[in-house]
């Protein structure tokens, strides 16, 4: 009875089973229907976190002495191309950021105008999807101010950030957020990190901070802000560079 399965058969079975499981997982992971099933987990996370979160629930803020000694730079540290080099050389004097798309009053801002607007300073933690984190102090203009001035149309559902850093496949970086996060008090366009103007490695002259999401949502080198009703028309249609090229979640709250 208990001798029904021999030791050798058992070990062979276990090894074969493990091998099948592994290659099976890879095959399943490539199967589109199975991927859709797995991605219901992402939809669930988005729905549940939005349900649990007060719309304006704040990300944790820290004391100045709790900051990282060095705020890690990640991804592109110096955008390629003559354009960016020229802007950097002139201190971004000619950098213009249009707010356009589904808005009543499209307009463009210079860096000087943005820095003169009411600002917010927040010390928050940046969590990279890879697992590291860093705490830094950001000074910025709240995104909400710009959107209120532009008069966002009721049809607009997403805010898209078009950036100045070309990626390895040639497309420029882009990211998008929903209007709940766009209206959040800590969602800001940062022009200073730790009391100094943003260095190129952290996205000079302007980067997005959307504090309740992971690092890849924090678009650097923001060049144009567009209000849209759907993400379908933007590159791969998934709402962001990493979402389109590698399948990262659009909602990066988890």
């Amino acid at each position: 009875m208990s001798g029904g399965i021999g030791r050798r058969a058992l070990i062979t079975g276990a090894v074969a089973g493990a091998g099948t499981l592994l290659s099976g997982c890879d095959r399943l992971g490539r199967d589109e229907r199975f991927q859709r099933l797995l991605r219901t987990g992402e939809g669930g996370n988005y729905a549940v976190l939005r349900l649990l979160q007060d719309r304006t629930a704040l990300a944790q803020e820290f004391r100045p002495d709790q900051r990282s000694p060095v705020f890690r730079m990640n991804g592109v540290r110096m955008p390629n191309g003559d354009d960016y080099a020229r802007h950097l050389a002139t201190g971004f004097a000619d950098w213009r950021i249009p707010v356009e798309g589904l808005v009543a009053h499209p307009q463009a801002y210079s860096m000087a105008q943005l820095r003169a607007m009411p600002s917010r300073t927040q010390i928050t933690r940046h969590d990279c999807v890879e697992g590291w984190s860093a705490i830094g102090k950001w000074t910025d203009v709240p995104l909400r101010l710009l959107l209120d001035r532009a008069g966002v149309s009721p049809q607009a559902r997403f805010v898209v950030f078009h950036c100045a850093d070309p990626q390895s496949n040639g497309t420029m970086y882009y990211e998008s957020i929903d209007r709940i996060d766009a209206a959040h008090p800590q969602t800001i366009l940062a022009w200073a990190l730790n009391d100094e103007l943003l260095p190129p490695g952290n996205g000079a002259p302007l980067r997005l901070r959307v504090e309740r999401q992971l690092g890849y949502k924090q678009a650097k080198y923001v060049q144009r802000i567009e209000l849209v009703s759907s993400l379908a028309g933007i590159n791969g249609g998934k709402g962001g560079y990493w979402e389109d090229v590698a399948g990262y979640e659009w909602y990066a709250g988890l």
Partner: peptide, 17 residues
């Protein structure tokens, strides 16, 4: 899972299960 480097897919598996 998966057997070759793919953080996005690993997260999809992880957050579903």
């Amino acid at each position: 899972i998966p057997s070759t480097y793919n953080l996005a897919l690993a997260r999809t598996w992880h957050l579903f299960f």
